[in-house]
Lab assay of single mutants.
Amino acid sequence: KELVLALYDYQEKSPREVTMKKGDILTLLNSTNKDWWKVEVADRQGFVPAAYVKKL
Rank of each mutant, 00 (worst) to 15 (best):
Ser14Glu: 09
Glu17Lys: 04
Pro49Glu: 02
Thr19Arg: 06
Val4His: 03
Asp9Gly: 06
Ile25Pro: 01
Asn33Glu: 12
Leu29Pro: 00
Glu40Phe: 07
Pro15Arg: 11
Leu28Ile: 05
Leu3Ile: 08
Arg16Ile: 12
Tyr52Phe: 13
Asp35Met: 14
Trp36Ala: 02
Tyr52Thr: 07
Val53Ser: 01
Asp24Leu: 06
Asp35Thr: 14
Lys22Thr: 07
Asp24Ala: 08
Lys34Arg: 12
Asp43Glu: 13
Lys22Met: 08
Lys38Ala: 08
Tyr52Pro: 01
Trp36Glu: 04
Gln11Thr: 14
Leu3Lys: 11
Glu12Gly: 15
Val39Lys: 00
Tyr10Asn: 00
Ala6Ser: 05
Pro49Trp: 04
Leu28Asp: 00
Lys1His: 12
Asn33Lys: 08
Thr27Pro: 15
Trp37Val: 07
Val39Ile: 08
Thr19Asn: 07
Leu28Gly: 00
Leu29Ala: 03
Phe47Met: 09
Gln11Arg: 11
Ile25Asn: 02
Thr19His: 05
Tyr10Asp: 01
Glu12Ser: 15
Trp37Thr: 03
Tyr52Trp: 07
Leu29Lys: 05
Gln11Pro: 06
Leu7Met: 09
Val41Asn: 15
Ala50Ser: 14
Lys34Ile: 10
Glu12Thr: 08
Gln45Thr: 14
Thr19Phe: 05
Ala42Leu: 14
Ser14Asp: 12
Thr19Trp: 05
Tyr8Leu: 10
Leu28Lys: 01
Thr27Phe: 13
Asn33Cys: 11
Val41Glu: 04
Gln11Tyr: 15
Thr27Glu: 12
Phe47Asp: 04
Lys34Phe: 08
Lys54Ser: 11
Thr27Lys: 12
Thr19Ala: 07
Gln11Ser: 12
Gly46Glu: 01
Ser31Thr: 09
Leu5Gln: 10
Glu40Gln: 15
Arg16Leu: 14
Pro49Gln: 02
Val53His: 01
Gln11Glu: 15
Ala6Gly: 03
Phe47Glu: 04
Gly23Lys: 02
Val53Arg: 00
Val53Tyr: 02
Val53Asp: 01
Lys22Val: 07
Ser14His: 12
Ser14Arg: 09
Tyr10His: 04
Tyr52Glu: 02
Ala51Phe: 09
Ala42Glu: 13
Lys21His: 10
Leu29Tyr: 04
Gln11Met: 13
Trp37Ala: 04
Leu5Arg: 09
Pro15Lys: 10
Arg16Ala: 12
Glu40Thr: 08
Tyr10Arg: 02
Tyr8Val: 11
Lys38His: 11
Lys38Pro: 01
Tyr52Gln: 05
Thr27Leu: 14
Leu56Ala: 05
Arg44Trp: 04
Leu56Glu: 04
Val48Ala: 03
Pro49Ser: 02
Gly46Trp: 04
Leu5His: 04
Gln45Ser: 13
Leu3Val: 08
Leu26Asn: 00
Met20Glu: 00
Glu40Pro: 00
Lys13Leu: 09
Lys13Gln: 15
Arg44Thr: 06
Lys55Pro: 10
Gly23Thr: 02
Asp35Pro: 02
Leu3Asn: 06
Tyr10Ala: 00
Gly23Asn: 07
Val48Glu: 00
Gly23Cys: 09
Thr27Val: 15
Lys55His: 09
Val4Glu: 00
Gly46Cys: 03
Trp37Arg: 02
Ala42Phe: 15
Leu5Ala: 06
Val18Lys: 01
Glu17His: 07
Pro15Ala: 13
Ala42Asn: 14
Ala42Ile: 12
Asp9Ala: 07
Tyr8Gln: 14
Trp36Val: 03
Ser14Thr: 13
